[in-house]
Amino acid sequence: MGRLIIILLSFLISIVVLAQDEPQPTPIVVTYDDVNAVAQQLYCPVCENEPLHTCGAPACVQWREEIREQLAAGRTSEQIVDYFVTNYGDRVVGIPQDDGLRLLSIAGPLVVLILGGLLGFFAIQRWRNTRPMQPHTQHPTTTEDESYRSQLEQDLRL
């Protein structure tokens, strides 16, 4: 019985050792969806402004094949995108990765928004504070139609 156990154990150990000697490379299955998920972050190099995952140009087909190979080699999505940016520049991504260019892209509209908001605020504030340019008679543009509405309004308030 003891010998049997020893034999079994050594057999098991040998299997484990053998298994370790020959590491089974688990092949990474790369689906089209995996490729598209990366390609979606990239732009076609030849036809400008065309996202890579929907582009049929030969160059794009080749790029997607490259993505597939890199995914199969176990590289992550970020690494692959970085690879393309290093090789082809910031034009291949939807927002540049280079810090300066990224800042340029994002800060532009942000500055405009803040500026627009501030100016709007001050403009209204100023208009509120200034006196009317001409004596405030009755509403010069009020038409019958509006008064009609205002009558409806009064009814509503009841």
Binding site: G116, L119, G120, F122, A123, R126
Partner: peptide, 10 residues
């Protein structure tokens, strides 16, 4: 345009 709107007073 708003900038100048703002500055008009001065």
């Amino acid at each position: 345009e708003m900038i100048t709107e703002q500055k008009r007073r001065f």
